[in-house]
Design a protein around this nucleic acid. Structure first.
Length: 570
DNA sequence: TGTGTTCGCGCG
DNA sequence: ACCGCGCGAACACA
């Protein structure tokens, strides 16, 4: 948010009264400097030639950016009105006086206001909001002015979040346009190795596992794909299980266990990522999912189509660079406890995180004796575990890292009491739903019964675990967004010192591009000769993200970086 | 025949 | 059992 300058600070694009595209240059305060109508070709030309630091403003990146990308044009910086509005509408750090006005066209439908505890309603609203974000100039200008005022009145951290969120929207569109390089031959080979070769309409190893299950159960007709019928078959065989789930079967000592688990594993791969998946989702050597930035309430990304965020690790070798290109794969170890240390300013925890292995660092403080115990304790602290090994170990963590634990414990109490919580940069959790509120009210009445009280306590605990995890998962998502944005910025600077290079799309110009992003992991597809520089950029971006988020507080974000033709892990 | 729910499992 | 997701298959029901 720069001060008023003679040159334009913002470039608002939208449609005019006739549905034609117009571009308005705005000064730092958001006041109009000039206005011009353009054709769609003219807009592309504008994006190609204007590689300055003027920030584009538009209603929705998913609406405006794909055509530019298809024409090989990219923009450097953007303010995405839809994405920023979603943050500002609920952010606690925006004072009441600066809250966004409810414009009919932007606001959520009544269904959402009335049923805030319905995940389905939320999904509907987000879908409608994305489709219906008004793209006309007048709405955009009015909305932008309101957002600038709200951001001015909010914290600097929320302004950082608005920028990071908008940049994330750019990356999501760019990743879809570029696609993830996917080698069908490798994928097919992995399927053949794991599932066995095709026999008729089936697979050899799948058939063998199914036959072994039927033998072990002495039941030639057992239905393996129907949980209820399989459960009855297990009961007939004398197995005392309440479900057919993997974790329950693992503990049993019975000859059916091994082949049944194998069958489940193979069938999962076949149905989720078999030939059908390849035929549906891979075209021209690229997997192109739709990424949905902030599709998760915590601010994490979601995806739509092809299960982009659930690609099994066993198929990672099918992510394969083009000839002459390489993949730089980087992920950060134990991201969530590291951001917890940063946001709680817990110096003891930061010291434990100083090496590359936070869990080993915790062991060396003496609070637990093994790495596995450290891991279970930390995950339990962030998820709100109360029972088992995890619940038993958490109190030790509370003594060793009081500041960190107080932060998550406070978040849990807030949730149990029906309050909202916010991430480090200021994304605020959804408010308690009507079912929660009604339940707590009914339990508070004099004539309440034990069942109602029990139900209310359970709902309170459930919401407490959600808000406890929200602050950590959401802040981790913010760190990752900063990392992504810093990586993108440096990659652009690496290959686009002049206007010409920036004018070309990534694949056409031979420039490195972000090909995949998954919570705490980035994959860059790059010409081989630039791979070392890209690895340095990704590493440096992680350090920058840490400073953007937590200033000089000494918390490390060490990366595992791998340069290879494929994205498999050795 | 189509629609919505539940289970189970992949990812972090 | 302790957070957040997407997706496919089976199934209940219209």
């Amino acid at each position: 948010m720069s001060a008023s300058e003679p040159s334009p600070a913002w470039r608002l694009v939208g449609t005019d009264g006739d549905g034609e595209i117009a571009v308005v240059e705005l000064d730092g305060a958001g006041a109009e400097i000039s206005r011009a109508g353009v054709t769609s070709g003219g807009l592309i030309e504008l994006a190609r030639t204007h590689t300055d630091d003027v920030r584009w403003v538009w209603s929705d990146t998913a609406r405006w950016y794909p055509p530019l990308l298809a024409a090989g044009a990219r923009v450097r910086r953007v303010h995405d009105l839809r994405a920023v509005r979603a943050i500002l509408r609920t952010a606690e750090s925006v004072p009441e006086s600066a809250r966004l006005p409810t414009h009919a066209a932007w606001s959520a439908p009544a269904a959402w206001e009335e049923a805030p505890d319905s995940r389905e309603a939320l999904f509907e609203v987000e879908t409608i909001a994305a489709r219906d974000a008004p793209s006309d100039l007048a709405s955009g200008h009015r909305e932008f002015a309101a957002q600038l005022a709200a951001l001015d009145a909010a914290s600097g951290r929320l302004r950082l979040l608005a920028v990071a969120e908008s940049t994330g929207a750019l990356v999501a569109a760019e990743m879809r346009a570029a696609g993830l390089p996917w080698d069908v031959a490798t994928h097919t080979r992995l399927l053949d190795e794991t599932l066995g070769e095709r026999v008729g309409g089936s697979r050899r190893h799948v058939d063998a596992a199914a036959a072994a299950v039927r033998t072990a159960l002495d039941d030639p007709d057992v239905a393996l794909d129907s949980p209820p019928r399989l459960l009855r078959a297990l009961h007939r065989a004398g197995l005392a299980v309440s479900s057919t789930s993997k974790w329950e079967l693992e503990d049993l000592d019975h000859p059916v266990v091994a082949p049944l688990l194998a069958y489940k594993r193979l069938m999962r791969l076949l149905t989720a990522n078999g030939e059908n998946w390849i035929a549906t989702w891979v075209r021209g050597g690229r997997f192109r999912p739709v990424y949905v930035p902030s599709g998760v309430v915590t601010g994490r990304w979601a995806s739509s189509g092809g299960g982009a965020l659930q690609i099994p690790r066993s198929l990672r070798p099918a992510v394969r660079a083009d000839p002459g290109w390489l993949l730089v794969s980087a992920d950060v170890a134990q991201l969530e406890p590291r951001v917890l240390a940063g946001m709680s300013r817990d110096r003891a925890m930061a010291r434990a995180a100083a090496g590359t292995d936070l869990y080993a660092g915790i062991v060396s403080t003496g609070v637990v004796t093994t790495r596995q115990e450290a891991k279970i304790a930390v995950l339990g602290a962030m998820y709100g575990a109360t029972t088992g090994d995890s619940g038993r170990l958490v109190p030790r963590l509370r003594r060793a890292f009081p500041a960190a634990m107080r932060l998550v414990d406070d978040a849990a109490v807030a949730g149990e009491e029906g309050r909202v919580v916010s991430t480090w940069l200021g994304r605020t959790s959804p408010s308690a739903g009507s079912a929660f509120t009604r339940s707590q009210f009914e339990a508070s009445l004099d004539e309440t019964d034990a069942a109602t009280e029990k139900q209310a306590r359970r709902r309170a605990r459930d919401r407490g675990r959600f808000t406890r995890n929200y602050v950590v998962q959401g802040t981790a998502a913010e760190w990752a967004l900063c990392w992504l944005a810093e990586t993108r910025r440096s990659l652009l600077a690496l290959t686009a010192p002049g206007a010409e290079a920036a004018a070309s799309g990534p694949a056409q110009s031979g420039a490195p591009h972000i090909a995949f992003f998954l919570h705490d992991e980035i994959i860059v597809h790059t010409p081989a000769e630039l791979a070392d520089q890209v690895a340095a950029i990704v590493t440096d971006a992680a350090a920058r993200a840490g400073r953007l988020m937590f200033g000089e507080f000494p918390i490390d974000f060490p990366l595992d970086v791998r340069i290879a033709p494929d994205a498999g892990k050795p």
